[in-house]
Simulated scan of single mutants.
Amino acid sequence: MNYRSLLASLLLAASPLFARAAGAALQLTGEPRVGQSFALQLRLRHPFAQLDPAELLLSFGFRLDFDASRLQLLQFLPAEGWNDDSPWLGPGRYGASAFPGVADPGTEVLALGTLRFRVLDAGVTRLRVFSEASDLDLGLNYLIAGPAELAAEHTLALSPVPEPATVVLTVAGLVALGTRRRRAG
């Protein structure tokens, strides 16, 4: 057996591990406006579905893909119970681990962490969290089931900050309507 066929056999044997992916989602907290910050919470839906009841989630890791002309990453903050491993993963890679592991909490959703951003420019942009099957530092790492992909995407509408003149005009209009209503009543 040559090295190519051995490598192909190993990749085929490992492929079911990487094919399984928990339902990851990014949940927006706050309205993204130019000059202000907002947060996205990275969550897993049914992270222990169809897994051994003794399963533990040991760690997770991911890369980020976003438009740096519109967004600035301020912070990655792991959820409670997770230890930030980002400094050891290298630039542009974020993750955390838990010892001895996170057991099935019996809930539908498991929070992994929060990403905080500052909005630099208005418009529509896409933010993507992803892992690569070939990188064992990234993805979801289970004790028994092994590695699984981690992927989530969110499209954001980044609002401009209202101009002061617009705010003044809106308030003046509301005051005029209120005054007119008082006189009529």
Rank of each mutant, 00 (worst) to 15 (best):
R33F: 12
A21P: 00
G173D: 10
H46F: 12
E153M: 07
R63Y: 13
T107S: 14
Y94L: 11
V161Y: 03
A103D: 09
P53L: 02
T125I: 06
Q75F: 01
S131G: 05
D52R: 09
L17R: 13
L177Y: 04
L6Y: 12
G95W: 05
E55T: 01
V124L: 11
A39V: 09
G139F: 04
A14Q: 13
A24S: 01
L120V: 05
A157F: 09
D84K: 06
L77E: 14
T107E: 15
A49Y: 11
G92H: 08
P100H: 10
L6K: 13
G92Y: 10
V102S: 06
S97K: 07
Q27F: 07
R126E: 14
T114W: 12
P53A: 06
D67I: 08
S5Q: 14
L174E: 13
P87R: 01
L51V: 03
A133F: 02
Q50W: 10
A24I: 00
F62V: 09
L56F: 11
A24V: 00
R128W: 04
T125F: 06
S86V: 03
Q36A: 12
E153K: 06
P162M: 05
L169H: 08
A151T: 08
F99R: 11
S15C: 10
L58M: 09
L143I: 01
L40M: 09
F99C: 05
N2R: 07
S15F: 10
A122L: 05
G35D: 02
A145F: 05
P53Q: 05
L140G: 00
A145K: 02
M1D: 11
P100N: 09
S69L: 08
L120G: 04
L10F: 13
L26H: 02
L71E: 07
V171Q: 06
Y3E: 15
W82M: 04
L28T: 07
G139P: 02
L169E: 13
G90Y: 04
F38H: 03
V102Q: 15
A25G: 12
F62I: 09
S69Q: 13
R45L: 12
R126V: 12
D135Y: 11
L26C: 02
N83M: 13
Q75N: 14
L44V: 06
L110S: 07
E108R: 15
L169Y: 03
G173F: 11
G30W: 04
S15A: 15
L28H: 00
E108I: 07
V161H: 05
P32S: 03
T155A: 09
L177Q: 07
Q36I: 00
L156G: 00
A21H: 04
A24R: 00
R20I: 09
R70K: 15
L56C: 03
L17T: 09
F48P: 02
G92I: 09
